[in-house]
Each structure stands twice: as structure tokens, then as C-alpha cells.
């Protein structure tokens, strides 16, 4: 059975969610312009949750996503690309957050007022993202490595 809205809200509001250890960005399997990381999220309930972060160094587009092993992506912050909501057709803007609904899964987004840092500062955005998602990170998010070679 798909994740219900109350279950999603319970996951989001649970303040025992914790990531332990430093997080390092690495290249993806294609050696694309983007770097990414994956971190396991521990909690008192034991939900199978991970955070996936990705940053496109050519265009400064940033995403932090909460992924459930059983449901897929349930929550995400996007900076640097626009979004159109399926229920209203409304364009949300280049800073938006996807949240779970039973009808639309993670397709509906809103403008998060708590994210004020720019995509070009992923570490500062990460701090704000963790605060809003009630995730404690016992470690550091390492700086994004520079793009070494001409990709394009």
C-alpha cells in the first residue's frame, strides 16, 4: 500500500532522524558534470530512508531528496529548475520543494520560505534543508569538488 499523507507527515516531523559522519560528493557513474552523495538516515522508528544530494557544477542546479527504499522519492528540494504543479498548472519557480500527497505522490511542489541560501552554496542550503526536514547531521558536508576537465 502506498505511503499515506499522515505517514509522510510522521516521517517528516520525526526529529530523531539522524545522519552520522561526514558526507563527501563523488562523481556519478557517467562522470557527468554533476556530483552526488547518498547518506543513510537513521531514526528511532527505523524507516528505510536515504538522502540523495546532487549538484550540477556547470549550471549550479542543486537537489536534496529524501528517498524511501519502499516508496521512492517522497520529499525533495530543487534549486535551479522550474516546476509546474499537476493540480493547478501553476509554475512554482526555480526554488521549490516537493512534498508527498497520496493523489500526486511527489509531483506537487511549493516555494519554501525557509530556504534563503543560493544553489551556488550547497553547504549552506544543506544546513537549511536539514533544519526544515528535522534531520540532525552529526558531521560535515564536504565542499563540492571543482570541475576538472572541459566537458562541453
Amino acid at each position: 500500500m502506498a505511503l499515506t499523507k499522515p505517514e509522510f507527515e510522521a516521517i517528516l516531523s520525526n526529529s530523531t532522524k539522524t545522519i552520522v559522519g561526514d558526507i563527501t560528493w563523488s562523481e556519478d557513474e557517467d562522470h557527468s558534470p554533476s556530483v552526488e552523495f547518498r547518506a543513510e538516515v537513521e531514526s528511532d522508528v527505523g524507516w528505510p530512508l536515504f538522502i540523495k544530494g546532487s549538484y550540477n557544477r556547470l549550471i549550479g542546479a542543486l537537489t536534496f531528496a529524501v528517498i524511501s527504499k519502499t516508496e521512492g522519492r517522497i520529499y525533495a528540494l530543487d534549486l535551479g529548475k522550474d516546476h509546474r504543479n499537476p493540480d493547478t498548472g501553476q509554475l512554482i519557480g526555480e526554488k521549490h520543494k516537493h512534498a508527498w500527497t497520496e493523489e500526486y505522490r511527489d509531483k506537487v511542489a511549493y516555494v519554501p520560505p525557509d530556504i534563503t541560501e543560493p544553489a551556488t552554496n550547497p553547504r549552506a542550503v544543506w544546513t537549511q534543508f536539514c533544519q526544515e526536514a528535522k534531520i540532525r547531521h552529526r558531521g560535515q558536508l564536504q565542499p563540492v569538488p571543482a570541475l576538472q576537465s572541459e566537458l562541453f
Binding site: 554533476s34 546532487s54 542546479a61
Partner: peptide, 19 residues
Amino acid sequence: SDLGETIRWLRGQTVSPRR
């Protein structure tokens, strides 16, 4: 080019490290 945005989007939906 999409500058890798499609693959970045796709990889952001899963925890699998490889396709």
C-alpha cells in the same frame, strides 16, 4: 545539450548507484 540534467534527475529518484 541537457548538460546531464536528465540523468541527474533520474538518479535523484533512486538510491541505486548504477543503472
